[in-house]
């Protein structure tokens, strides 16, 4: 089986969010970058588990981004994966990302393309479905489990208030979330091996974005907590009823 795992770079979950240049740029000073948690813990680790089960599995990683995302794709290679692509561009929207991934995927003829559920910075939840459409492939979103029977995948996905199990023939795009796998930590051997794994930098295909950024805004700060003494919990209920009018 040939698997392509889509890896994106995001600010660490605790990063301070601030904007400059008239609220059009995310201020990256002091920001720690990580592999998008969904891509790492669920998509990549699930692919690695499949390879551990069947050594003939090939795992390729892809990221769309400038040279500054290279440490992240190396880190992903240290966890596992055979080789990586970096499409050298600074994407403006999810569509531009999807077009680049679809291009590499077309050439590689993968059985399975795995993405994270969403990036924790742009929260689009869009790239995987767009890639599937561009390749005219089926897609399962928000998957929590993945197994195989013959040439079909048996995928469990989240639906409102429950789960659905479906059988779908490969090839397939799957967006992964909690349940697919457990987080792993790269070991020394992986880190050493990652240094010599091929990382191919490829030029982007020319494509215009469909949307553009106007500006960012920070939400208004909450006015502060109103504390109710612990020996008067009834007062909290009164406030929620009479003041907030919520219960």
């Amino acid at each position: 089986m040939k698997i392509l795992v889509c890896i994106s770079r995001t600010p660490d979950t605790t990063a301070k969010i601030a904007f400059g240049d008239n609220n059009t740029k995310f201020v990256t000073d002091g920001v720690q970058w990580i592999i998008n948690p969904y891509d790492e813990w669920y998509a990549l680790v699930r692919a690695i588990m499949l390879k551990e089960r069947d050594a003939s599995t090939t795992i390729h990683l892809i990221t769309v981004g400038g040279a500054d995302v290279e440490p992240i794709i190396r880190k992903a290679l240290a966890l596992g994966g055979d080789e990586a692509f970096r499409v050298d561009m600074e994407p403006m929207d999810s569509y531009q990302v999807a077009v680049q991934i679809a291009q590499i995927a077309r050439e590689g003829q993968y059985d399975l393309i795995l993405t994270g559920k969403e990036t924790i910075d742009s929260n689009g939840s869009a790239v995987g479905a767009m890639v599937a459409e561009l390749l005219d492939m089926d897609m399962v979103s928000l998957a929590t489990a993945l197994e195989f029977e013959g040439s079909s995948a048996i995928v469990t996905r989240e639906i409102e208030g429950g789960e659905e199990v479906a059988e779908i023939p490969l090839p397939l795009v799957i967006s992964c979330q909690k349940g697919m796998a457990e987080a792993r930590i790269p070991n020394m051997r992986g880190i050493m091996a990652a240094r010599t794994k091929p990382l191919k930098v490829v030029p982007p295909v020319e494509v215009a974005p469909l949307t553009g950024l106007v500006s960012y805004t920070l939400p208004p700060a909450r006015s502060g907590v109103r504390l109710v003494p612990a020996d008067q919990p009834e007062e909290l209920v009164r406030l929620l009823h009479e003041e907030a009018r919520i219960i």
Binding site: I17, L213, V214, Y216, T217
Partner: peptide, 11 residues
């Protein structure tokens, strides 16, 4: 965007 920590206006 940023997991609820900001808004983005998109054209």
């Amino acid at each position: 965007v940023f997991s609820g920590k900001a808004f983005m206006d998109v054209l």
